[in-house]
Design a protein around this nucleic acid. Structure first.
Length: 379
RNA sequence: GGUGGGGUGACCGAGUGGCUAAUGGUAGCAGACUGUAAAUCUGCCGGGCUAACGCCCUACGUAGGUUCGAAUCCUACCCCCACCA
């Protein structure tokens, strides 16, 4: 269990298979985000039909609503959501970053003021691991301290070192849970590398993380939080040689289509991002030639499919003109259909990358794909 | 026919002498969104010129008038609504 097998690599890019209690994940792969136990707007069956292999949930959000005990009583996150496949829960570390202003970080943990009702909740590394154990995903993430992308050396150092100290506590708490409640096959925990945009801090975080191993996977966090894209890519290039080849690498919170290919080329195996569904709800759809505003006047009356190259439910059943109409009249179906397309788009991008890695043509294919995509985006 | 009320930018609707190209809202148009405080947020929204500051033109039913200055006051006319004949 929790085994990762690399089937082939081309440069730094890898095609692999991750074995988890609830199934296998063929990589590279995009994981849709289902913060509250739902990939916003989509049923489990619809998510399944996008080809997604693994879905995320969020510790902080599920702790607030409905509460991890409720989920546990109802049979765990898989039964709760009707998604029988692999799942991963994020620790709430990202909320330390995104809820800035609603939280106070200390060594013990983070005091959040709930965005739901204003009540104060404290999340510590121990508490976070308990909650994630109760939720019961295949993979739990360590509780980390994410700082903004442009953070000073001082702040990034603080976040990075705290993340390492918390990692020790997370590990103990997770091992305790495994010992007390279940076999080692039930859930694994992955650490998260921090360090902002500072190379020395990133390398220290990598080193500190690995020496606390062994692990079954490693995540790279604190990217795509405001730093320029070349900086993110440089961090990936910096870390790649030091990452154990036999572990899946998960780049947290990334990304847009181009980010996936750029990440895969730099050795990343797993991605997650809310942009597919958020942009879907907001009316932006990804295309091989860039992106399109589904609400835009030019789509009025168009009988073309959203993306003629796409095999998703949306593109094979309705027209651009109808999708635009759904947004104009504000029917939820429009949000859902574009979300379905965007998720399928990223999932399929992962599938395509995998095939091209397996047959050795990844670099050429990726270059061409990015060229076409970026040229379209300039329109 | 009489009396009263009313006609404002695509629509609804404020404004009752200068701070008014004219508050708001809707519709429309565009942009943003990366481990989800997001079916959200931001910008534009009479026309023309400008990269921009800005300049010019046309506008508050129609036509005149008063005034340094009018969507706002006066006169006539047109149209709508209510009530009375």
């Amino acid at each position: 269990m929790f085994e990762f097998r690399v089937e082939r690599s081309v440069g730094a890019a890898r095609a692999g298979t991750l074995s988890l209690p609830h199934g296998e994940v063929h990589t590279p792969a995009f994981m849709p985000v289902g913060t509250y136990g739902v990939v916003r707007g989509l049923s489990a069956a619809e998510v399944r039909r996008t080809g997604a292999q693994i879905v995320l949930g969020n510790t902080y959000h599920l702790h607030l609503r409905p509460g991890e005990q409720v989920v546990q009583t109802m049979g765990g996150l898989h039964r709760f959501t009707g998604w029988p496949g692999p799942m991963l829960t994020d620790s709430g570390g990202f909320q330390v970053f995104s809820l800035e202003g609603l939280r106070k970080v200390s060594e013990v943990g983070v005091e959040f003021q709930s965005h739901v009702d204003g009540s104060y909740r404290t999340l510590s590394p121990e508490r976070v691991m308990e909650i994630q154990w109760s939720l019961g995903a295949d993979v739990a993430m360590a509780f980390d301290h994410v700082v903004p992308g442009q953070s000073s050396h001082e702040l990034a150092l603080e976040g990075m070192e705290r993340t390492l100290r918390w990692l020790d506590r997370c590990r103990l708490a997770h091992e305790e849970a495994v010992r007390r409640y279940g076999g080692p096959a039930a859930q694994t925990m992955w650490p998260i590398i921090q360090g902002g945009v500072h190379p020395t801090l990133r390398l220290r975080s990598l080193e500190g993380t690995l020496e606390r191993g062994p692990w079954t996977g490693v995540a790279i966090g604190g990217l795509s939080v405001g730093e320029p894209k070349p900086v993110m890519q440089a961090v990936l290039e910096l870390l790649e040689p030091g990452l154990p080849p036999n572990l899946p690498r998960y780049l947290m919170g990334v990304g847009f289509p181009a980010d996936l290919l750029e990440g895969i080329a730099r050795g990343v195996d797993l991605f997650d991002c809310v942009a597919a569904t958020r942009n879907g709800r907001h009316g932006t759809a990804w295309l091989p030639t860039g992106r399109i505003n589904v609400k835009g006047a030019p789509l009025k009356g168009s009988v073309e499919p959203l993306d003629p190259d796409c095999d998703c439910e949306t593109c094979t059943t309705v027209s651009r003109g109808y999708l635009r109409h759904l947004f104009v009249v504000e029917d939820i179906l429009g949000l859902r259909l574009v979300s379905i397309h965007n998720v399928r788009f990223l999932v399929r991008l992962g599938e395509q990358a995998r095939l091209h890695i397996l047959d050795g043509t990844f670099e050429t294919w990726s270059r061409e794909w990015l060229k076409r995509h970026r040229e379209g985006s300039l329109e």
